[in-house]
Write a protein that binds this DNA or RNA. Structure first.
Lengths: 137, 137
DNA sequence: AGAAATTTGTCCGTATGTATC
DNA sequence: AGATACATACGGACAAATTTC
């Protein structure tokens, strides 16, 4: 079977099925997924197809793979998050000025959000917006 | 020679080489990359390996693929108008280094998302993360 | 300590489907 | 219509990391 030509490709269907098993708790947090060899037997597809399905789950954060060990659902402990926010006004650098089509140095509203996971900074999100000249209402 | 097993996988070495050609301007903005068949001949690898290398560049924002057309380096205009999301690696400045508790200059994964409203840039979101130790891709 | 088994990672070659020029 | 190129899928092989015996 080269290409199904019906609806979704098989690797996506398999990804949907595995995602469902993780979300439903059938595969609990931290637990290993069945090995690729097992999944190829269950779904009767080539290993490459299984690997592609798992790659989708990895990108979505539903799975973590480790060489020689296996692929497992993310543990819940890692999901403990805590965020703080801060807002300030900053001049636009060349890149931002180009994006917004304004002169460099134009003041922008910048909001920085710091997300911590298990007391360690995990992600820093910075949001830039044009400063409204007149409140539009 | 199935797998060289030395250092980086070949698809990454090839991705590095192609990225260099784009950054150096050898492949100018907007220009098509050599055809997959050409790259296959040049690097003497299978198509799948070339495709994986190009997939890396796509994720980094260094290449855009269009079905039936080809893969090209992003034009400057495209970065403003088209690219809604781009991922790159940047050294941490003093502020970010302090937050993440790493040395300044440590490479971070930065993802920039541009949100437009009626053809005008509305918000720019930049997300910074530590580079994972075990890149599962 | 060490060998074997398991599991993911990489790569090859081929084939067919589908979209664009 | 034909050429080109991407998308999906198969099966086989070896490498490398981890676990198990």
């Amino acid at each position: 079977m080269p290409t199904p030509s019906y609806g979704q490709p098989r690797y996506r269907v398999i990804a949907d099925e595995l995602r469902e098993r993780i979300e439903s708790g059938l595969i609990p947090p931290g637990a290993l997924l069945p090995a690729e060899s097992v999944l190829t037997a269950e779904f009767r597809v080539a290993r490459g197809t299984i690997r592609k399905a798992i790659a989708v789950l990895r990108e979505e954060g539903y799975a973590i793979s480790e060489h020689g060990r296996g692929t497992y659902a993310p543990a819940q402990a890692d999901r403990r998050v805590d965020a703080s926010e801060q807002q300030q006004e900053l001049p636009a650098d060349a890149h931002l000025a180009d994006l917004f089509k304004v002169a460099p140095g134009t003041m922008l509203v910048a909001r920085t959000t710091v997300i911590r996971r298990s007391n360690q900074v995990d992600t820093v999100v910075r949001t830039y917006r044009l400063r409204p000249k007149h409140p539009s209402r």
